[in-house]
Design a protein around this nucleic acid. Sequence first.
DNA 1: ATGCTAATGCAACGAAGTTGCAAAAATGTG
DNA 2: CACATTTTTGCAACTTCGTTGCATTAGCAT
Lengths: 138, 138
Amino acid sequence: MLTDVNDILKKNQLSVTDSRKSILDLFIHSNGALAHADIEKQTGEKFDRVTVYRTLQVFMEKGIIHTIPTSDNSIRYALCKDDCTGGHHHDNHVHFICKICGLTSCLDSVTVPEVRLPVGFRPLEKQMIVTGICEGCQ
Amino acid sequence: MLTDVNDILKKNQLSVTDSRKSILDLFIHSNGALAHADIEKQTGEKFDRVTVYRTLQVFMEKGIIHTIPTSDNSIRYALCKDDCTGGHHHDNHVHFICKICGLTSCLDSVTVPEVRLPVGFRPLEKQMIVTGICEGCQ
DNA sequence: ATGCTAATGCAACGAAGTTGCAAAAATGTG
DNA sequence: CACATTTTTGCAACTTCGTTGCATTAGCAT
Ligand SMILES: [Mn+2]
Ligand SMILES: [Mn+2]
Ligand SMILES: [Zn+2]
Ligand SMILES: [Zn+2]
């Protein structure tokens, strides 16, 4: 897995800019998923809000990051595995959100289980979010 | 299951007002889950935005409705089963979102399956959202 | 019917997200 | 490296969404 931000950006045919390098670096060295606000803060408000929005959008399109929906309507973003490419994400892992500290983790080792749906419903993608208490907050 | 709006409101110790009656009625006679905007439109903009927000909030607190998180950051609301009371919801069913028409359904007959989490993660609630194509859109 | 309590509507505000456009930075070619 | 071309950025303006305080109105119990 590539960990050098320059290589990742080039591999995805993106020009290498300060904002993209900083934000991607943030994802790589971050423990859990990041909300938009986290990114603004953790980059020291060095970049415009709009730039952060556009960077996240471009990373999404290239399959570099994926979103995690939360019940409080605040989307978190996390790195994809290597095999996610533009448009098609293959992250079928469970997500965990800690009720205490808010840490949002990709449980890469836990795959979303299959379910049988009633007739008439054709499933395409499935997502599972578990809330509870994380290791650090026990 | 109570279907008369007056009875439901009284059972939950809520005063019976026009907005609460209309909005609750909307939920009872609606096929899928409703977004905030749907409610504003479908009540003919008869009530103030703020009233809709407060009504949904109060219905949530009383366990009359529950939320369904979506990846596009737009919360949907749907009726709870009878045994959901203030603070404690028991809707552990799968939710289905149609990619074509957007219909969001509570699959009351499909329970969210169990998963084994890595050590350190203590689960409290779990949620599963399946996206795909609904009966009407096949 | 009357008084008390709770809910509503309005206005104002703040946060979040989008768009157009000019300035600045990145890329590739000689 | 210098240059022209393309892409990205930052700013300003704007829209949408959600929240709060307060005066008015409606619901409820006596
Ligand atoms: Mn993930
Ligand atoms: Mn439901
Ligand atoms: Zn925690
Ligand atoms: Zn459909």
